[in-house]
Design a protein around this nucleic acid. Structure first.
Lengths: 137, 137
DNA sequence: ATAAAACTTGCAACAATAGTGCAAATTCTA
DNA sequence: TAGAATTTGCACTATTGTTGCAAGTTTTAT
């Protein structure tokens, strides 16, 4: 697959083994990945620091986005087409399964608007739903 | 004020300096607090470990609740009356100001229900809105 | 008011996670 | 294919969270 290549190219990034491999992981992944998942799946073929920096770069370029969690782990998932550098459009709901612990982007479920108190100006919203996913029922 | 005393009493916790002080911080705080904020405001009068354990205890007892963020820091905020031990009712929207960086509980704004794809069973939802708060306009 | 029981704290040690500077290696440009 | 630009890995440091245990504090029951 040349998909990884194209994504990197489109974002003006050098094509390197590490970046291709990490992108591949995201493309294959069903759900979101944590830094730890990536290290596990790459067999320490790349330095820990490289993974951090790659993830940072991808977030900056709008290739992946971060997902908020309560348990102090940053999760990352691929952005869909609409994202561009410096401007994410990841306003879809994220689902965390209590059973298999996977985090899944519900790309088709957009975060609903809410009425905020007077004076609060919304710019971005995130929504996380916990429960049991389709596979675990 | 005897409010701290009462909260601790009601939850069957021993009344200690540390717990009273940390509760006071929450009662005074406009927004949510991170572990680091608490250490800062207590002048290291209490051990780092004590702060961790106090926060844990408060979460378990339903005195404070955790707020998900994307930046890898757990935030805590006081629960309103409705919370009880082991059963939080913090299904309100949280607002993070891009300017002053405060996190505010919008207690009156409940997280809306969303329609999930077939097979997904929701149990708990969280919603975080980023933007400019009332004070910063 | 007081002693024993129960609980809480601080310390030290540890573990996991994240970030930085810099030299070596790789990738890109022309 | 050489030089410029970027990326990587290493060693080191910083930050964040956890655990066991002895000493200290709070509670309880006299």
């Amino acid at each position: 697959m040349e998909q990884q290549f194209n994504i990197l190219k489109k974002n003006g990034l050098s094509i390197t083994e590490g970046r291709k491999k990490i992108l591949e992981l995201f493309l294959d992944a069903e759900g979101a990945l944590a830094h730890a998942d990536i290290e596990k799946h790459t067999d320490a073929a790349f330095d820990r620091v490289t993974v951090y920096r790659t993830l940072q770069t991808f977030v900056e370029k709008g290739i992946i986005h971060q997902i908020p969690t309560t348990d102090n782990a940053i999760l990352y998932a691929l952005c869909k087409d609409r994202c561009e550098e410096g401007h994410h459009h990841d306003e879809h709901v994220h689902f965390i399964c209590d059973n298999c612990n996977k985090t899944i982007c519900l790309d088709d479920v957009t975060v609903p608007d809410v009425k905020l108190p007077k004076g609060f100006q919304p710019l971005q919203s995130a929504m996380v739903v916990k429960g049991i996913c389709d596979d675990c029922r």
